[in-house]
Amino acid sequence: MRKDLHEANRLSWNAATVAHNSHKGDQAAFFRNGGSTLFPEEVELLGEIRGLSLLHLQCNSGQDSLSLARLGADVTGVDISDEAIAFARRLSHESGIPARFEREDLFAWFEQAADGQRSFDRVFASYGTICWLSDLDAWARGIARVLRPDGRFVFMEFHPFAMVFNERWQPFYDYFDKAPVEEDGVGDYVAESGTGLTPGEHETGMVDFRNPHNSYEFYWGVGEVVSALIRAGLTLERMEEFPFANGWRGFEGMRDIGGRRMVPPEGMPRIPLMYGLVARKRP
């Protein structure tokens, strides 16, 4: 486990979160007016969550967490970024949607939760999460430990096959490389995605953001994710692959085909851009 790299990522995310939220307008008003940041795919995988306790891993600034709380779940969000958690707590207060937000490195949080015998009906994580984690088995074991019997883990993530390409759709990254990849910090992907990641009101916000803190990413294949969950004692119930990316314009020429679903330019073959799964803890 590379806690030193997790700490570097915390600093990088603190800087990037300010830039990201600068583009999203009055988010409290968006939620007060009934807004939601969720996409149909994760709602369908989660199923009915009203009255259930739900743990949202790497919740970022809490927008999806509050959208889940609005569906009736008792939500706890966890994230490593101080800035993200502070923003999420303010947004919860200003929007009037109750949720708990806790700042901690995820692996440390799992240990604390196990010591406190905390448990949840659902555990949820989505979009650009596991690439920041240095130990996939520890992640899967942590999920299994905090799930209640018959509880479910729901995961939606960008497909690792797409991550072999650079922004110009050129093969660049090694799918099987296990060494951490150093980058020039978490970028302003919210600005680059335009209205794709700002369902309320898109604002110009910060311009030409440059992160002063480098970041480190880890590449995990689909087989590694599934195997880690199985080794942790969970049962895979469902897995889906999608030829579009929700909200994120991560590559040149991506097109919105409706519903903020982004696909490659005309003429390119369809490739998997996202996948989702559901894993259950046996009673």
Rank of each mutant, 00 (worst) to 15 (best):
K3M: 12
N9Q: 09
R10T: 09
L11T: 04
W13I: 03
N14S: 02
A16R: 14
A16S: 13
T17L: 06
T17F: 10
N21S: 09
K24A: 11
G25P: 00
D26S: 02
Q27A: 00
R32C: 07
R32A: 05
G35M: 04
T37Y: 01
P40Q: 03
E42S: 12
E42W: 13
R50L: 08
G51K: 02
Q58D: 02
S61L: 10
S61C: 15
Q63V: 05
Q63A: 05
D64M: 06
R70T: 04
A73P: 05
D74H: 14
V75K: 14
T76M: 05
V78C: 11
A84L: 00
I85Y: 03
A88K: 00
R89V: 04
L91I: 02
L91F: 07
S92C: 04
S95C: 01
A99C: 04
A99V: 05
E102V: 14
R103Y: 05
R103D: 05
R103S: 05
F107G: 08
A108N: 14
F110A: 13
A113Y: 03
A114M: 11
D115Y: 10
G116R: 15
F120L: 00
F124R: 03
Y127D: 06
I130N: 02
L133G: 00
S134C: 12
S134E: 15
A140K: 09
G142L: 08
A144L: 00
R145W: 04
R145H: 11
D150G: 13
F153D: 12
V154R: 03
E157P: 04
F158A: 09
F158H: 14
H159F: 07
A162G: 06
M163E: 15
F165M: 08
N166T: 00
E167C: 13
Q170W: 06
Q170I: 11
Y173L: 15
Y175K: 07
Y175F: 15
D177P: 05
E183W: 10
E183T: 14
G185K: 06
G185H: 04
V186A: 12
E192I: 10
L197H: 07
T198E: 03
H202E: 14
T204N: 09
F209E: 01
N211I: 04
H213I: 11
H213S: 07
N214A: 12
Y216I: 04
E224H: 09
E224N: 08
V226T: 14
A228I: 10
A228T: 11
L229G: 05
L229T: 12
I230F: 13
A232F: 02
E237P: 02
R238N: 14
R238S: 14
M239Y: 05
P243I: 13
A245H: 10
N246L: 13
N246D: 01
N246C: 12
G250P: 09
G250K: 01
F251S: 11
F251Y: 15
E252V: 13
M254F: 01
M254I: 04
D256C: 01
G258Q: 06
G258M: 01
R261K: 14
P264V: 01
G267T: 07
M268W: 06
P269W: 03
R270M: 11
V278G: 00
A279T: 03
